[in-house]
């Protein structure tokens, strides 16, 4: 599989009154062609900011991307001017985004037809009538009944799930190579979530598109992603194939995340274990491992060393931890 998007050492900062927030601190990852990759982590760990940085959509001020490379189609997107024509020709046409809040992510005063059609008019040079015709097709593709009669409706005339379908249609409009879905179903109820994720998965497969799925829901990534990046405090702490990570987590944070998810294959009376403590303040980060204060497996070395880099622990699996967690966990079980 060829690499579609290759991000190297991405660094994004936010200047706030309290200080500089290192929201993304040296993140590297890649997305292959036709692959679904999950980004997991709790709120504020930098997973969304990472994706927005790829698109150079970080509001500036207060945010700025201070380093890194984003290779796509043989070009480093970060070399492009933030809202310059080259960057704009990538947005929406080659990489598109599906945002979290379907209630606020659609423009309340423009019709659905307008909002789906405009990127096609822009990137595919369709005229208004053709764009509208294709918008209707897209709308029925994402499962909105009577698409023809609903195309001229406004967002407030749709329910949350329907609006998110519209967002998906917008994301697909120009047949992009990569779709970045930033918590696409978080704001929706559970049944709608499942239906929409299936829809996204099917459409991505049908159009041979890659998908970056940002979520804090481990169940979602387990089901849909082929690979996972686990993020904590602006860094990737573990990366690898989904099965591998669920079966053999190698970072204490991943272990903690998995322990607080109920599983069908475990006894019903088994307690869920939350991760103690709070995520660190990204303004005053100590040089050590960011997870150290909450870590149950820490050793002496952790407190004395600079934070551990992401190192391979298996063929495609890597983790940023000094502890040989697999050995430790086995000892625990005995």
């Amino acid at each position: 599989m060829a690499i579609l998007l290759d991000v190297k050492n991405l660094q994004t900062r936010f200047d706030t009154e309290a200080g500089v927030v290192k929201a993304v601190d040296g993140v590297s990852f890649h997305i292959n062609e036709q692959e679904i990759v999950g980004f997991v982590g709790e709120s504020g760990c930098g997973k969304s900011v990472t994706q927005l940085s790829v698109m150079q959509l970080i509001p500036n001020p207060p945010g700025r991307i201070i380093g890194g490379e984003v290779w796509f189609d043989g070009k480093d997107l970060l070399k492009y001017e933030r809202n310059g024509s080259e960057m704009r020709s990538v947005r929406g046409s080659k990489i598109s985004m599906i945002f979290q809040e379907p209630m606020t992510s659609l423009n309340p005063v423009l019709t659905i037809s307008e909002q789906i059609g405009e990127s096609m008019q822009l990137h595919l040079r369709l005229n208004k009538a053709d764009a509208r015709k294709r918008a209707v097709e897209l709308l029925s593709l994402v499962g909105i009944p009577a698409a023809e009669s609903r195309i001229d409706d406004y967002p407030h005339q749709f329910s949350g799930g329907m609006r998110q379908r519209v967002m998906i249609a917008i994301g697909l409009a120009c047949n992009p190579r990569l779709i970045i879905a930033d918590e696409p179903t978080t704001a929706l109820d559970v049944t709608t979530q499942a239906v929409l994720l299936e829809l996204i998965k099917d459409l991505v497969k049908r159009f041979n598109t890659s998908l970056t799925l940002v979520t804090h829901n481990l169940g979602v990534v387990a089901r849909y992603a082929q690979r996972i990046y686990v993020m904590y405090a602006g860094r990737i702490v573990e990366a690898g194939p989904t099965n591998e990570i669920f079966a053999h987590p190698r970072h204490p944070y991943t272990v903690g995340l998995l322990k607080c998810v109920p599983r069908l294959d475990q006894p019903r009376d088994k307690q869920l274990v939350p991760i103690e403590g709070l995520p660190p303040n990204l303004i005053k980060m100590p040089p050590m491992c960011a997870f150290l204060p909450r870590c149950a497996y820490r050793i002496n070395r952790c407190e004395k060393s600079h934070w551990p880099p992401l190192t391979p622990v298996g063929e495609h699996h890597s983790a940023a931890c000094f502890v040989n967690l697999e050995a430790t966990l086995e000892n625990d079980d005995k």
Binding site: R88, S89, V90, R91, F99, T104, S105, N107, L110, I170
Partner: peptide, 27 residues
């Protein structure tokens, strides 16, 4: 200009004028 739908508009690749006059002004 800080609303989510303006970010959506940027993510479609529209230029600043389209963002201001089509997406922001009427709101």
């Amino acid at each position: 200009m800080h609303q989510d739908y303006i970010r959506t508009a940027w993510s479609k690749g529209l230029n600043e004028n389209a963002i201001i006059f089509k997406h922001a002004l009427k709101n």
